[in-house]
């Protein structure tokens, strides 16, 4: 039997719930997630340039097209489908919709997750820091203006609300 045919079993937390997957060892995390029905994770380029495939692994932003599924074994993965249950991500979803940060929507899941990763490590970022944090998520529709505005707005509201709910 060729080695790549040997399926592996992964146990990880997916959007807050314990999850088990069986897959070939070389499968990209992106392919695993989409196969599991999480079609909010998008493929834009397949080489880690556009960020449309970005997800959080242990709250760190990663391009799922450049990660092997087996590398999330024992870890926690958050996709856009898990945003509603996450404090920063849920606020960002509302802010993106309210502030015009969404046009065609294809970059949006990755962009919201990248913004969430930023606010988790830096709750009060200046615009330059926001732009730097999002520089790996390409948007062709908005020119980033209203995306930056949405992140700023979400960060203000989160800080005003204060503490964990």
């Amino acid at each position: 039997m060729r080695e790549h045919d040997l399926a592996i079993t992964l146990r990880y937390t997916l959007n807050g719930k314990a999850h088990t997957s069986v897959c070939p060892p070389g499968l990209r995390l992106l392919d695993l997630l989409r196969r599991e029905g999480l079609t909010g994770v998008k493929e834009g380029c397949g080489e880690g340039e556009c960020g449309a495939c970005a997800v959080l692994v242990d709250n760190a932003l990663v391009n799922s097209c450049l990660m092997l599924a087996l590398q999330v074994d024992g870890r926690s993965v958050t996709t856009i489908e898990g945003a509603a249950a996450d404090r920063e991500l849920a606020e960002l979803q509302v802010a993106f919709a309210r502030e015009g940060g969404v046009q065609c929507g294809m970059c949006t899941p990755g962009m919201v997750l990248a913004s969430g990763a930023l606010l988790k490590r830096s709750p009060d970022p200046l615009d330059e820091e926001i732009r730097e944090a999002l520089a790996g998520n390409l948007c062709r529709c908005t020119g980033y203006v209203r995306i930056v505005k949405a992140v700023r707005s979400a960060s203000q509201r989160l800080r005003a609300a204060g503490g964990q709910p």
Binding site: R2, P24, G26, L27, R28, D31
Partner: peptide
């Protein structure tokens, strides 16, 4: 668009 690495032999150390 499944990545071709799906056929790659991989082992964890």
């Amino acid at each position: 668009m499944t990545g071709p690495s799906a056929r790659q032999a991989v082992v964890s150390a």
